[in-house]
Design a protein around this nucleic acid. Structure first.
Length: 703
DNA sequence: GTAGGGTTAG
């Protein structure tokens, strides 16, 4: 051959190689269009060019385009075929991968191993095992894939057996086995293997550190971390997360500050860590300082606001991220739906639902359970049921959402019906199920059924009753007026009663006018929650009614000394897609305050005509009679209802939310308001829903 | 320059 020709050919192939390099580089950067542009311009495409661009489409989740190109290839080698299997596996299309595997002209150990890996990733461990044992010439990689599959399946003992059978064990195989032990808390065995390793690298070290960190041995993890010969950002992040997961946020924060590099994952973990401590500002500082954010960053920050109770900030962030063209992930959807639920912001909730449908996430069982809860808490029972009915395979979480939601709407019968349906389908009830079922019984006065279910929890359903369940039962008995029986249960229960239990007994005693038990419950509650105003006020009312003025004075002194304040009642209503807040007392008045006052006066007149008489015994302030009546007129729920009457178009239900339980006087008043105005009023309080219509409430005055 | 295995999360 002529030297010039050789030179020319070398020149051509070097052009081709550099083109392939460029394609691969663009693929690595996720810039598939740029990769394609280069590919289209290469004059004499080699198999490598084709293989690279096809891999690129697979990596960018465009398997159709990848397959289209594969079909157009002038010739293919085994790498092309294996790339196709691998591409399908990466796109969770294991059936397609298998088809390719069955059709390909020849297979090597990579083809087999990729296919086994495909089954492992789908959790189809039986298929993986059967294929693995058919591999004609296994190598250390095939063995390791199978080992990883068994570990992922939680079968550590079998993994150990397989590990012992391996003819060659390299650092990757050993690290896999160490991780397997660690995930099952078998730290001693992990450490032994780690110490016996002939060679270690940064990943094996990190695996061992993570093992200690995830098993609450952060200090041991830190010691090992300190002596690591080489650290990368994953090692640092793993150590950081050891601290955040144990709730040791201060140490996490110190550690975070000295990290040489702060990868996105670490920042996200630190944001969530601060969230655990409700340190919004520190979390936000990291969030703002991050030049690169991923979807996890946004969902972490949303979660922080959600935990803090800053619902509006969560919603703001959710819309901000979308305005920046980012798609919300699973966790952001969960946060935003929870926030819609707690604000009972039905409009917004519906929009999020529409987005879920668009992003094809509406078939996710978990997300749909959150969606059901959202619709329930927004008072849209029909929509909740529709989401529920769409799923033929419901998990226990979804059943729980439905049962709890029905309970909150006072539909005890329907809740029990759903519960029995779930049991007959063989779905195992869990702790949450029983909180829902028992509170359904409680809210609807089903004392007998409630007791039966509670007593059979352990024997029939194999669920050990916990404090929450005892709380439901105390509530159930107390509401039904069986306060002594409730007291007996508290004495008999195997745990110390908590503030919720005493509070519920106290409430029952107030309703049923049992002053002796009320005093006992209030005193217990005071010990547990010295800053809770409820028991002070109740006690002072009791003492006053008995003329024990010295005790009243003593109580007042204590209240002042401990800086007790009543948690402010607050109600809100959605009008024209805007939330209008009302607080009962003296704080900032609504801009349309005078109109609302006029409405209240008019209502007052109408109510008096129909024989309404304000009931001062519900007022928690210890003021004199006249002031009491005045203050009742200003309770936040009444203000919100009045505003709703002014603004919500005729024929639409008025939906009001309140952060505390509805006051008894307001409850009577709203029943009458519904009657004299002919409007339907739906009030969601801290516990449940009240549907007011024609002078009646769905709770049948039992709440 | 193209195909298979191990470490960080809610």
């Amino acid at each position: 051959m002529q030297p010039l020709l050789i030179k020319y050919r070398t020149y051509c192939s070097s052009i081709a190689i550099s083109a392939n390099c460029q394609i691969a580089r663009y693929v690595r950067l996720g810039q598939i269009q740029d990769a394609r542009r280069v590919f289209d311009q290469v004059p004499n495409k080699s198999i490598v060019s084709w293989n690279s661009i096809i891999a690129g489409y697979f990596q960018n989740n465009q398997p159709k385009e990848a397959l289209l190109l594969f079909d157009k290839m002038p010739e293919r080698n085994i790498v092309s075929w294996n790339g196709l299997i691998s591409g399908f596996v990466k796109n969770r299309m294991v059936k397609e991968a298998r088809k390719v595997f069955d059709q390909m002209p020849e297979r090597n150990v990579v083809s087999w191993t990729t296919m086994v890996r495909g089954y492992v990733e789908e959790g189809l461990i039986l298929e993986a095992e059967s294929l693995f044992w058919q591999i004609p010439e296994k190598n250390v990689v095939s063995w390791t894939v199978m080992l990883g599959g068994l570990i992922q399946d939680g079968r550590v003992d079998e993994a150990q057996k397989l590990y012992d059978m391996m003819p060659v064990k390299d650092v990757v195989a050993r690290t896999n086995m160490i991780a397997g032990y660690c995930q099952n808390g078998r730290l001693a065995e992990a450490r032994e293997l780690f110490d016996d390793m002939p060679r270690r690298n940064v990943i094996s070290w990190t695996t061992m550190v993570t093992g200690y960190a995830q098993n609450q041995k952060v200090d041991v993890a830190r010691k090992l971390f300190e002596v690591m010969p080489e650290k990368n950002e994953v090692s640092w992040t793993a150590m950081l997360m050891g601290y955040t997961q144990c709730g040791r946020i201060e140490e996490a924060s110190e550690f975070f500050d000295v990290m040489p590099e702060k990868p996105v994952i670490a920042c996200n973990a630190m944001i969530l860590g601060f969230g655990q401590n409700r340190e919004v500002d520190k979390a936000r500082k990291i969030f703002d300082s991050m030049r690169e954010k991923d979807d996890g960053t946004w969902s972490a920050m949303m979660k922080v606001y959600e935990l803090k109770g800053s619902e509006l900030e969560t919603l703001n962030l959710f819309s901000l991220m979308q305005r920046q063209g980012l798609r919300p992930n699973f966790h952001s959807f969960v946060s935003v739906l929870s926030v819609c639920a707690s604000l009972a912001n039905l409009d917004h909730g519906r929009q999020v639902h529409a987005q879920l449908v668009r992003s094809k996430s509406d078939s996710d069982v978990y997300l749909s359970s959150v969606l059901i809860t959202m619709y329930m808490k927004c008072g849209d029972l029909d929509k909740a049921k529709r989401v529920f009915d769409r799923f033929s395979h419901k998990d226990v979480v979804m059943w729980n959402s439905m049962i709890t939601g029905l309970a909150q709407h006072g539909l005890g019968g329907e809740a029990l019906q759903i519960f029995h349906e779930m049991c007959s389908l063989g779905i195992a009830a869990d702790e949450v199920t029983f909180v829902g079922v028992l509170s359904a019984c409680s809210y609807t006065g089903k004392v007998k059924q409630g007791k039966e279910i509670f007593e059979s929890m352990n024997s029939k359903y194999l669920v050990e009753p916990r404090t929450e369940h005892y709380a439901c039962m105390v509530d159930l008995l107390g509401r039904a007026g069986k306060v002594y029986e409730a007291m007996d249960l508290i004495n008999k229960m195997p745990f110390e009663a908590d503030a919720i239990i005493w509070g519920s007994l106290m409430g029952a005693c107030r309703t049923h006018m049992n002053l002796d038990l009320a005093e006992l419950a209030a005193k217990k509650l005071l010990e547990l929650e010295p800053k809770n105003a409820g028991p002070y006020i109740l006690l002072s009312n009791i003492y006053a009614s008995k003329g024990r003025w010295a005790d009243v004075a003593e109580l007042r002194k204590n209240m002042m000394a401990r800086k007790v304040s009543k948690s402010p009642g607050c109600s809100w209503i959605d009008v024209e897609k805007k939330v209008h807040m009302f607080t009962g007392g003296e704080s900032m008045p609504h801009p349309e305050h005078s109109m609302i006052m006029k409405m209240l006066e008019r209502l007052g007149g109408l109510l008096r005509e129909s024989g309404y008489c304000p009931d001062g015994s519900f007022v928690l302030h210890d003021v004199d009679e006249e002031e009491k009546v005045q203050s009742l007129g200003h309770h936040s729920e009444k203000l919100a209802v009045a505003y709703g009457l002014l603004k919500v178009p005729e024929g639409m239900p008025i939906r009001v939310m309140k952060n505390l339980r509805v006051c008894g006087d307001c409850h009577s008043a709203i029943k009458l308001i519904a009657k004299v105005t002919g409007r339907e009023i739906i009030l969601r309080d801290a516990n449940r829903f009240h549907h007011f219509k024609d002078g009646l409430c769905s709770c049948r005055d039992y709440w």
